[in-house]
Amino acid sequence: MSLLGPVEVRRLAEELDIRPTKKLGQNFVHDPNTVRKIVTAAELDENDIVLEVGPGLGSLTLALLPNAQQVVAVEIDPPLAQRLPQTVSEMDPENAAKLHVVLKDAMKVTQKDLPAQPTAIVANLPYNVAVPVVLHLLSELPTLQKGLVMVQAEVADRMAAKPGNKIYGVPSVKLAWYAEAKKAGSIGKNVFWPAPNVDSGLVWFQRHEKPLSTVDRKRLFQIVDAAFAQRRKTLRAALKGWAGSAEKVDELLQKAGIDPQQRGEQLSVIDFIRIAEV
């Protein structure tokens, strides 16, 4: 099996007349050691069906195929989606049959769009949509048990942050509803073409064995959004619009056993669930 280096990445981009766009968040990995590091950190086994979002020219795809039962690659860009099976056939014919390419926006993917139900997501995600994509896929694909995503370093910190941390916020709580998350490494700028302006980070997550609660997720997420809409406000002030009045907030929080003078960043996902259940 061969992996794509800087020469191959440029050659493929030239052949397809691709100039990486900021709109699609295209930064192609051209360092074989980086994709090996990602695959190792993903803790895959040979039975995993891997969902890769935004495979681009195929750098990570080629590293994933020997380590999984199948790889379902979701690509929004038609020329890239069309070229990927050919690239894999040329560089790793032995594993080419394991690849399925789906031409689709990952934010609109549902179970019925996929030829196989994935157990893991491994992806280099565009910075501007990383969190919404992960939350959407965890919501839509119940078979998805774990994941390893490469995102902007700051986003990685937020996704894995715990209560009480200054950067703990909406992404931290919403991801915690589905899964246990942790940072799994850092990635420098120079492994990409073109090099982005910021470093990247790896986030690993494992879905909870059973749901944390049967409470309505939409209601829970509304409370989370309201609690963090103005970070400096106490829960009493932040949730006033959502509950209808400060008195109503006091009543609800008292029943949930939570101090109205606390701020959203001090509450765990379990605390937010208690408010939603009340």
Rank of each mutant, 00 (worst) to 15 (best):
E46V: 05
N47P: 01
N47K: 02
I49T: 06
L51V: 06
E52V: 05
E52H: 03
E52N: 03
V53Y: 02
G54D: 01
G54K: 00
L57K: 00
L57Q: 00
G58C: 09
G58Y: 01
S59P: 01
S59L: 11
S59C: 12
L60G: 06
L60E: 02
T61V: 06
L62V: 06
L62Q: 08
A63H: 04
L64V: 03
L64R: 06
P66E: 04
N67D: 12
Q70W: 13
V72Q: 07
V72Y: 00
A73K: 01
V74N: 01
V74K: 00
E75M: 12
L80R: 07
L80N: 02
A81Q: 12
A81C: 11
R83M: 08
R83V: 08
P85H: 06
P85D: 13
V88N: 03
S89V: 11
S89F: 09
S89L: 11
E90Q: 15
E90L: 13
M91T: 07
D92E: 14
E94R: 10
N95A: 13
N95P: 09
A96H: 05
A96K: 04
L103C: 12
D105E: 10
A106V: 11
A106W: 00
M107E: 11
M107I: 09
M107A: 15
K108I: 07
K108R: 13
T110A: 14
T110P: 08
Q111T: 11
D113E: 14
L114T: 01
P115W: 03
A116F: 07
Q117K: 10
I121S: 00
I121Q: 02
V122R: 06
N124I: 11
L125V: 08
L125A: 12
P126W: 01
P126L: 09
Y127E: 04
N128M: 10
V129Y: 08
V129S: 13
A130P: 04
A130W: 00
P132E: 06
V133Q: 00
V133D: 00
L135R: 12
L135D: 08
L135Q: 11
H136I: 15
L137G: 01
L137S: 03
L137V: 07
S139H: 14
E140Y: 13
E140R: 15
P142Y: 09
L144C: 06
L144D: 02
Q145K: 13
K146A: 08
L148H: 05
M150Q: 11
M150E: 10
V155P: 01
V155F: 01
D157S: 14
R158A: 09
R158E: 06
M159Q: 02
M159N: 01
A160D: 04
A161P: 01
K162V: 14
K162T: 13
P163Y: 03
N165V: 06
K166C: 04
K166T: 08
Y168E: 03
G169F: 05
G169Y: 08
P171F: 05
P171I: 09
S172Q: 07
S172W: 02
V173D: 01
V173R: 00
K174D: 06
K174Q: 14
L175H: 07
A176V: 09
W177N: 02
W177Y: 12
Y178A: 04
Y178S: 02
A179F: 05
E180G: 03
E180D: 10
K182C: 05
K182V: 05
K183V: 05
A184V: 04
G185Q: 01
G185F: 00
